[in-house]
């Protein structure tokens, strides 16, 4: 990188998270030398995911998304952009939809995290999962877990009074195969 190198999102994330992580570990500094010292400092944490406690030790800078995918092998949650733009990483935290790429794992202790893997009850699909199949609301499946988690929240928020309202409240989840009308139909189905 040259001096005119672009402002990197991870730099922003580090700066923004410093205050939060300060109470837990030494504040990561911006200089390479200091970063090198703190990078090996993992934090023990417990994440409650889909009703189960997972103990893990990761660096404070690890996002919830990367903790789920790369440490807990819960790969149903997808990484599409890693900057909160596509919605593929949507999970529920205490029932609210959030983008797991925009939050650090260390910040999400003592809450109920629900991922796509947590919607199934035994062999029985969640009504919205069933509706997605019935309405062909998926193609490649890359955005689908995020769409479904977002759709579950959209229904519980009550934003399903009309197709237009669903369209608006589901517009934070991009679908490049472009199943949007079918996603709206699936949410309408499941909201009944």
């Amino acid at each position: 990188m040259t001096a005119d190198s672009e402002y990197k999102r991870r730099t922003v994330l580090k700066a923004g998270s410093a205050a939060v992580t300060a109470t837990l570990v030494a504040t990561p500094a911006a200089t390479p030398a200091a970063a090198a010292q703190t990078d090996s400092s993992s934090v023990d944490m417990t994440l409650r995911v889909n009703g189960r406690d997972h103990r893990l030790a990761v660096e404070p800078r690890v996002t919830l998304l990367d903790a789920l995918r790369e440490r807990l092998d819960l790969t149903g949650t997808k990484k599409g952009c890693d900057r909160g733009e596509c919605g593929a990483c949507t999970v529920l935290v205490d029932g609210r939809r959030i983008k797991s790429c925009l939050t650090l794992a260390v910040m999400r202790q003592n809450v109920e995290i629900t991922t796509i893997e947590g919607l199934v009850r035994g062999d029985k699909l969640h009504p919205l999962q069933e509706a997605f199949i019935r309405q062909d609301a998926l193609q490649c499946g890359g955005c689908t877990p995020g769409q479904i988690m977002s759709g579950v929240a959209c229904i519980s928020e009550g934003h399903t009074r009309s197709a237009d309202e669903i369209r608006e409240w589901m517009s934070g989840n991009l679908c490049r195969c472009a199943c949007y009308p079918n996603i709206v139909a699936a949410i309408q189905d499941a909201a009944k």
Partner: peptide, 24 residues
């Protein structure tokens, strides 16, 4: 016929393993 996708269940449950989901 408008048969439902046979890979639908894998894709709506997060069970479908994509390339980046592989850890060795």
């Amino acid at each position: 016929r408008p048969v439902e996708r046979v890979d639908g269940r894998a894709k709506v449950t997060g069970g479908a393993r994509y390339t980046a989901d592989r850890t060795l």
